[in-house]
């Protein structure tokens, strides 16, 4: 699911393995968006990493191999020191099937970007499916969306050749199903414009989490986070600026 979520944004990337788990940071080709992923060791039934290692992987190749796994298979990832290949083993404990695949690794000279700690002006958590719906609906009308956070709520608006549209979400607490709540923490009003093409792309991570958190400040990249039980996928998107 993680590979599915990011494979259309980045093609080749390093999986950085160390004591804390497997991490990845990569920009898209146009250098407008950045994806950062972390799978913590606690999320693995077994995890061993004797030495920090970067596994340079073509995500399309990895995806091809992962398609060979069944949903409930146990997956083991293995790489030696200075590896040429990443080994994947899929096991089905019920019928004792073991599938073994190797994918070739590549040297990827990937620069890491320092992401400054930011006190965001607005932090909004909403159901991830709702966010996906809004992005898809608005993309049919325009290529850009204005996101405005005020004490009234968060407003997504766009205008295109056929007309215009806007969706406003107000803070709303669902006691029975907290994952359906919308929470808005506002330090100061925020108004920014983003390319919908990227937002729709990020929504491929919707299956990772029932909620998504948008963190916004004026004139800095939008942070979109899908939290998992033992890790996260974060997308950063640079804003568009006015004419």
């Amino acid at each position: 699911q993680v590979v599915d979520a990011i494979k259309d944004l980045v093609q080749d990337c390093n999986f950085d393995c160390n004591d804390s788990g497997i991490a990845l940071q990569a920009m898209d080709n146009s250098h407008v968006a950045l994806v950062a992923m972390h799978l913590k060791t606690e999320g693995f039934s077994q995890y061993r990493c004797d030495r920090n290692i970067a596994l340079g992987v073509n995500l399309a190749s990895l995806q091809k191999v992962l398609r060979a796994a069944q949903n409930e298979d146990l997956l083991t990832l293995k790489a030696e020191d200075a590896p040429d290949v990443l080994s994947l083993v899929f096991e089905n404990s019920e019928n004792d099937r073991i599938s073994e695949y190797d994918i070739k690794l590549m040297d990827i000279d990937q620069e890491h970007l320092g992401i400054p700690d930011t006190e965001y002006g607005a932090t909004v958590t909403l159901p991830s499916a709702e966010f996906q719906r809004i992005c898809r609906d608005l993309m049919l009308i325009s290529e850009s969306v204005g996101i405005e956070a005020t004490k009234e709520g968060i407003k997504f608006s766009c205008a295109g050749d056929i007309g215009s549209g806007a969706v406003t979400l107000r803070q709303n607490a669902n006691v029975d199903k907290p994952e359906l709540s919308t929470t808005i923490e506002l330090q100061e009003p925020v108004a920014l414009t983003f390319s919908l093409k990227y937002l729709v792309n990020f929504c491929k991570a919707t299956g990772l989490s029932s909620t998504v958190t948008l963190s916004l400040s004026n004139e800095v990249p939008l942070l979109i986070e899908y939290k998992m039980e033992h890790g996260f996928v974060r997308f950063y998107l640079a804003p568009k600026i006015g004419d």
Binding site: M27, L113, G114, Y236, L237, K240, I241, D243
Partner: peptide
């Protein structure tokens, strides 16, 4: 893209 900022104008190389 006109008006689209790049991510590297916000995040510096380490």
């Amino acid at each position: 893209q006109a008006g689209q900022k790049g991510i590297m104008s916000f995040f510096q190389k380490k």
